[in-house]
Computed example of a mutant assay.
Amino acid sequence: MPTTADSHSSLSSSPTTSKSSSSSSYFVYPVAYAVSGLLRRLSSDPEHSKGTSSGSQSLSQSVDSMDGVYTPPRRHASPFQPPPLTPLTLGGYKFNTSQSAKLLTRALAEEIRLLVPPRLQLVDEWNLMYSLEQNGVSLATLYKKCDEYRGKRGGFVLVVRDATGGVFGAYLSDAPHPTSHFYGTGECFLWRAHTLPSIPTLSSLPLPPSADTTNAQRMTTLAHPKDSDTLSPPLSEQGSRSGTSTPERIRFKAFPYSGVNDYMIFCEQGYLSVGGGDGHYGLWLDDNLEKGVSSSCPTFGNEPLSDEGTKFEVLGVELWYIGA
């Protein structure tokens, strides 16, 4: 039977033994875990190491490809095309307005239509707000006509004719009105147009000498009789009657907003101007709509719109509204 001293010594030694064993296991376990991990890595399959090396190789190739030239994927045009626009209708001319007094033709309006904002391209009717021929020579009248359209989400097409017959103008995002600051958005642009001469018809001319005339019938040229009642109508009238006349050919050039400055529209009681910078106006008209100025300006990077030069004489002015 153990004595009290023996039991006391055994009790005192047991915590020391457990403490030493726990401390030894604390250091032994990480070492054993590390050794077992090394053994597993050394005894792993060679295929696994091969896959690891191939993965690192592909990663290095992808990194190297970042320094190369990017080749975008080939894209194909969408088979879905927007429907064609409805032909334009120009309204506002008086019934007694002569054709020569009309500045804007439907062919020219279709060219301008392609450059206006898409929301306004769907509008198929343009309304004449002001015409020098119908409303008189006054810039104040033009401003007054525009008052009812201020604030609307529409567009305005300014058309000018000079003394040489040239037609040019501007598209305005806001209604012209006198104010002390510039206004308008980057949708504004300047434009000019030239009507090209029609191509003469060659159907009435005889065959050239190099043509094969073996089976050709005899052709005799006869002089027209002097009686005016028997004169045949001109070829242009014959074409218009049949509906196959040559359409009007137009050379159209536009000058969009360049982003250099925001001098789109500036109007006062004494003048109207579109574009500016460096002391130049893209288009400038006086209060009597008699004199005008057009120079190259930074706002649109345009060329002078008139063939007369920087200064020109105004023979006609029209302002059209696009919108509901």
Rank of each mutant, 00 (worst) to 15 (best):
A324M: 12
P209E: 01
L90G: 03
R241D: 14
L59N: 09
T230K: 14
C188R: 01
M66A: 15
P117Y: 06
Q269G: 14
T179C: 08
V69I: 15
Y130L: 09
A170W: 02
T221F: 09
T214P: 02
G51E: 11
A324V: 08
P83A: 07
L319H: 13
I112N: 07
A109P: 08
Y143P: 01
S22D: 14
H224V: 09
P82N: 06
L315E: 08
F266Y: 12
S10K: 02
V31R: 13
L38H: 10
R75E: 13
D287F: 07
A101M: 12
T214D: 09
S236M: 03
A163K: 05
S204F: 00
E308Y: 07
A77F: 05
S43Y: 06
E318V: 02
N96Y: 10
L315D: 10
H48I: 09
F182M: 08
G55I: 05
D307I: 04
P208N: 01
A324I: 09
F189H: 12
R161V: 11
P256V: 12
L122S: 15
S232N: 03
G155Y: 01
D64C: 04
N288P: 05
V31G: 01
L196R: 07
S232Y: 06
P225I: 11
Y93N: 13
L108A: 03
L85P: 00
P87R: 00
S228F: 09
S258Y: 05
M219P: 00
S78D: 15
G270T: 14
W320V: 11
A175C: 04
P83W: 03
M1G: 10
E133N: 15
E237G: 00
L235Q: 10
R153D: 15
A32Q: 03
G186L: 11
S43T: 15
S44C: 15
L85D: 05
Y263C: 10
S138E: 11
G154I: 06
E125T: 15
E268K: 05
T71Y: 12
V35K: 09
A101H: 10
S173C: 02
P83T: 12
S78T: 15
L319Y: 07
L139A: 07
S100P: 03
S98L: 00
P247Y: 02
I199E: 06
E308H: 14
G51P: 02
D227C: 03
V160L: 04
M1C: 04
M1P: 08
E290Q: 12
P208F: 00
Y263G: 02
P118R: 00
T214A: 06
S204Q: 03
Y257S: 08
Y70H: 13
S65W: 15
P2F: 07
P84F: 08
S294A: 04
G55A: 15
L315T: 13
N96I: 00
S56W: 11
H76G: 00
S173R: 02
Q57V: 01
P30Y: 13
P117R: 10
Y183D: 09
V69Q: 01
S131D: 07
G155Q: 02
L222E: 13
Y29N: 12
L315V: 09
T213K: 13
S44V: 11
P118K: 00
S18D: 03
F189S: 05
G184Y: 05
S65T: 12
N288L: 12
S294C: 09
G55D: 14
R249V: 09
L120I: 14
S294Q: 04
T16E: 07
Q269K: 11
S131E: 06
Q81R: 13
